[in-house]
Design a protein around this nucleic acid. Sequence first.
DNA 1: CACTATTGCAAACACGTGTTTATTATGCTA
DNA 2: TAGCATAATAAACACGTGTTTGCAATAGTG
Lengths: 350, 350
Amino acid sequence: MKRISSNDIARLAGVSRSTVSRVINGYSNVPEETYNRVMQIVREQHYYPQLSGRQLSGKGSNTLGLFWIGKPNLSQALFSSNMFMIVIDAAAQRNYLTLADIVPNLSEERYANQVRRVFSEGRIDAGIFIGANNAEPLMEELPDNGYIVGIHDYYRENDPQPLRLSVNYDRSSGEQIIDYLYALGHRKIAILSGDLTHQSCLDRHESFLRGMTKHHLPLRNQWMAYGGYTEEPAYLGARQMLSACMDDLPTAICANNDSAAMGVYQACGELGLRIPEDISVFGTDDGPIAATASPPMSTFVIDTRKLFFSLVNRVIDTLEGKENVPRTEFIQGTLLPRASSAPPREHRNP
Amino acid sequence: MKRISSNDIARLAGVSRSTVSRVINGYSNVPEETYNRVMQIVREQHYYPQLSGRQLSGKGSNTLGLFWIGKPNLSQALFSSNMFMIVIDAAAQRNYLTLADIVPNLSEERYANQVRRVFSEGRIDAGIFIGANNAEPLMEELPDNGYIVGIHDYYRENDPQPLRLSVNYDRSSGEQIIDYLYALGHRKIAILSGDLTHQSCLDRHESFLRGMTKHHLPLRNQWMAYGGYTEEPAYLGARQMLSACMDDLPTAICANNDSAAMGVYQACGELGLRIPEDISVFGTDDGPIAATASPPMSTFVIDTRKLFFSLVNRVIDTLEGKENVPRTEFIQGTLLPRASSAPPREHRNP
DNA sequence: CACTATTGCAAACACGTGTTTATTATGCTA
DNA sequence: TAGCATAATAAACACGTGTTTGCAATAGTG
């Protein structure tokens, strides 16, 4: 399937190829009559300059790489759906296309090479990374080699590398949730932490702890557990934790995110604990499952759209040579109590 | 940021550029010693041939376009999440990358051009379309111009165009659902249809009608309504239909898909109809919301992964010149009753 | 030894584009 | 009218690759 080239247009218009190029790229020294004749043929033929040629002569690809680090499993996929759409949308609004790639991890050499290859082949001008671990050597190497990377959830204090940008989550989510639960009367609060090698999980965990400390609430080991960030491990973690302290149950449980909170729902269901009558449950993110959960889930809203638009726009700004682009941003969230949280039993009106 | 070229490799290895090319492309007439020397440098330098060069000299881009036709709104996005992941995954398993693009519609010229451009620029070797209407001129034009397209849900009887492939849904879903409901004792069944310009919506609707006819069940207008394929219009359609026949309610209601069924849930909730005690509800698809809905939703499982793997693989087969590639496939599904369906009141044991 | 077949590799070409340089045609001025 | 500035456009080059052609050196054969 032979594609149309600027030579064909030149022939049809009876001019030289360079004139076609000047018309397309809006040079001034081409008279209106010639411009119109060429332009009409360009439109008629649906001619668009071949990317390979453009790129070879020094232009970029106008493409952003979108790297999803992790298995393409369903629960995460569900959560990530919007992320994909939003990144594609954000890029499109700046006239960039998005090349999406799923990479199981970055520590195995072959997968790291998979990423290097996409950059080296010149397929993309910059890369957006979702789900990268916090200490990934590739996130050093790529910008050191001159590639611009935008990383979701990967904060680094005083980063000297100007080609590494990131976007991060509100670091006060935990405190705000604890404040709210404290105000409801909760004093015995359990915390299900995520995978602490991810920045946001660590931030959220520390924020919960700050909230607890602020209100002089006890940080008991039996009310702390690991829950990962998907439903399954959270379910296991919550069930184990709760069944180990049935004689002294917490009155509320805070999960690292909504999916994990769904795991808590399941564990509570199995142990006969009603939400919120027996125990309050809080998620974080306000992802697609929070509102339709039963009961509707109390959570902390993060505007994913705002988050990725910030990242994509700053990456493209950097790419296009804009100066003083902020390299890190924290996206503020808001507390959103729903029916899964209520005052603890002893505080409730009879 | 200067990228490495085969010239650099040639210089480092002390051979000519053409030798580097022969090494990389596995030509036979290069002695082992030279091969090893060159290969080592290629690996050390993380050299990958520039795509633009390769493409310019006649190779493909090894890239599939993934066109999402429709607004990037959330409810659809949720449903589409897996589709994106699955297509990317399927392509990756054949060593293809995926260029994703969101296109609001194909009837507006500027959006059609957006698609034409991606093809013309040589960014992709073939395109996968999700959400294209059933009579889209662009789906004629592209294959007529030599581009391979793989269309989700776009059946055409005896299609003469060899470059147009498609994958479609089980066309007996409605019959199977009606069979099941009939066996439970239901005789008054309502049907919420989707947007009939989409093949699957039409197929499902017709399949429901065949099922009804087969069992000599009445097809009453008051038990038919339009529900779109997202939650909102389905909610509106269901509420209007149900409140218009409160004196003679159907005992079951079948929706075009799970999201629409969620709209039915909502309408029933508002009208005080309990599911399944007062009315049984059926979705179709077994998407991510079906299992966690409350009550868990009866539905008809479509293996989305199988569906898109079939499409992607056949598109790539065609691309790579394989002969006699099946151009249309129907992916069989299975009935999955859950708690949202039960025998109608009069048939229930006391 | 003289000639040929084979091996190993370098040089040359094509691909499509953007840009720079050179060339022709046109209009103006002295 | 001769000379020159300018406008319009053509020719030339560079970019990185795969492949084809050609050339030298080596090995094999009579």
